[in-house]
C-alpha cells in the first residue's frame, strides 16, 4: 500500500504543472469514533497530502491521500473461555490508508488571492489493517471500505507574491470498512489537519 501511494504521488507530481492548483501536505490529528472499546485514543501519527485543481475560481477538485496509525495499550487481563484462560497485555493497532477524489467550493475572501476558505466532499476508498500485538505474537485482519469525507478548511498564502502558505482543515471520515474479528461494523474518525500548501495561480 505504501508503494502504491508513493507511485500515485509521483505520477501526480510529474504530470500536473499546467493548471491553477495547489499541493498540500499536512499533519492529521484524528480520533476514531467507532468501537472505541478497542481503540479510543487520538493519534497525531497521521497525515494527508493531495493536489487540487481550480476548475474555476469557486470550484476545485483533486485527489487526497491519507494515512494514520491508531493505537492503544490494553493492560494485562485474563480472558476465560470454557475450560481455558489466557493472560497477556495487548497493543491494539489500526493502520489506515485512504484515497479520495474530492471537490471543494471555495469562498472568496478579500481580493481572493491570500485567503481561501473552502468546504468540500471527498469520495473514495480506504483500507484498514487491524493488528493485535501480544508478546511476539500478532493477529491481524485487513479490510477495504467505501469512504466519504466531508471537509472544511482554509488556505492562507504567506504573502501575495509567494506560492507557499499554510492550511488548516477539519474532516469527518465515514467508511464502510468492517472487521469481524475486531468488531467493527464501520470505521469513522474525526480529524484536524494542519500543514503546508503550495499554490500556483
Amino acid at each position: 500500500m505504501k508503494k502504491l501511494l508513493f507511485i500515485i504521488i509521483i505520477l501526480i507530481a510529474g504530470n500536473a504543472f499546467a493548471q491553477d492548483k495547489y499541493f498540500y501536505v499536512s499533519l492529521d490529528i484524528s480520533k476514531p469514533l467507532d468501537n472505541t472499546n478497542w481503540i479510543n485514543s487520538t493519534t497525531a501519527r497521521g497525515g494527508k497530502a493531495g493536489v487540487r485543481f481550480f476548475i474555476n475560481p469557486k470550484i476545485s477538485a483533486g485527489l487526497d491521500l491519507g494515512w494514520s496509525t491508531y493505537d492503544e495499550y490494553k493492560p494485562t487481563k485474563t480472558i476465560y473461555t470454557n475450560n481455558s484462560a489466557v493472560t497477556s497485555d495487548y497493543f491494539n493497532y489500526i493502520y489506515n490508508y485512504s484515497a479520495a477524489i474530492s471537490a471543494q467550493y471555495n469562498f472568496k475572501v478579500g481580493d481572493g488571492e491570500v485567503l481561501f476558505p473552502y468546504a468540500g466532499l471527498g469520495l473514495g476508498a480506504n483500507t484498514n489493517e487491524y493488528v493485535l500485538y501480544y508478546n511476539i505474537y500478532q493477529d491481524s485482519e485487513r479490510s477495504w471500505g467505501f469512504l466519504a469525507r466531508p471537509e472544511a478548511g482554509i488556505l492562507v498564502k504567506f504573502s501575495h507574491r509567494r506560492s507557499i502558505g499554510a492550511m488548516a482543515a477539519i474532516h469527518y471520515d465515514y467508511s464502510t470498512n468492517k472487521s469481524e474479528n475486531y468488531n467493527y461494523d464501520r470505521f469513522s474518525a474525526l480529524g484536524f489537519q494542519i500543514g503546508l500548501v503550495f499554490i500556483t495561480l
Binding site: T76, N83, S84, A85, V86, T87, S88, D89, Y134, N135, Y137
Partner: peptide, 8 residues
C-alpha cells in the same frame, strides 16, 4: 511479560 495460557 509472557503470554500465559492454561486449560484443564
Amino acid at each position: 511479560q509472557l503470554v500465559v495460557s492454561t486449560n484443564y
